[in-house]
Design a protein around this nucleic acid. Structure first.
Lengths: 119, 119
DNA sequence: GAGTCATTTCGTTAACAATCGAAATTAAGC
DNA sequence: GCTTAATTTCGATTGTTAACGAAATGACTC
């Protein structure tokens, strides 16, 4: 577990203080996904999504890993950050009834990168 | 418990996403306090502190009550908001080792409104 | 190593948030 | 009800953040 000062706490909560980032966390709860898949569900510019992902990663909520030509993002499994390790299990149970989140998660189940991620 | 949609969650986390508001929560953990006492510890303009307090109150973390010519703020005891009721006990244990928070809480123990809140 | 496509970085714009001082409001005590 | 002092609201300024499109980077495939 890394240090736990007030700046760290601020960064962790800031990561959670945007509804699009909360949507991303709920989507990744369904399964790991590439940026283009997340983008297609959120309907935001890829650069915007990339920025949100970086904030969530820097706070310790998600991690990335290369998979061929894709970069997959997934919820962090081994939490390094104390705050995240306590918040993540809580948040997992939250927002399950939110209409937008439900719709997002439904799409996340069926999204197919080989269909979506072409241009 | 009130509704728990994504906008509510966003507001709750946004309330926690500023270090001065985190300091206020830790200070109020010591004891209920008037605005002028909190201001004297944080060393911010009263209008700034008032704004932070309103955000924390609207998110459900604190409540206010009149006490003569003062308005006392205290941590909410009966949590109406589901998210707050889960976060508040966690947060209570956090930041205890942060130097600034320790200094704040030390001051909070000895602050005396009858000495501080004159002009 | 050239082409292709996913991802990230950059530069810009617009909206939002933190801060302050000053003015307005509220309430207590005489 | 007048005075005094605490608190809140208002207006302006400054800094931060979310968003976009375009350009740059990175990596796989041939």
């Amino acid at each position: 577990m890394t240090t736990k000062n007030i700046k760290t706490a601020e960064r962790v909560f800031k990561a959670l203080s945007d509804s699009n980032r909360l949507r991303i966390l709920k989507i990744l709860q369904v399964k790991p996904m590439a940026v283009c898949e997340i983008t297609s569900i959120l309907k935001l510019a890829t650069s915007t999504v990339s920025n949100h992902l970086a904030l969530l990663r820097d706070a310790g909520f998600i991690q990335d890993e290369k998979d061929g030509k894709w970069v997959n993002y997934r919820l962090t499994d081994e939490y390094i950050e104390k705050y995240v390790s306590e918040l993540a299990p809580l948040f997992r149970e939250w927002l399950e009834d939110d209409p937008l989140v439900k719709s997002d998660m439904k799409q996340a189940k069926i999204v197919d990168r080989f269909v979506i991620c072409k241009q």
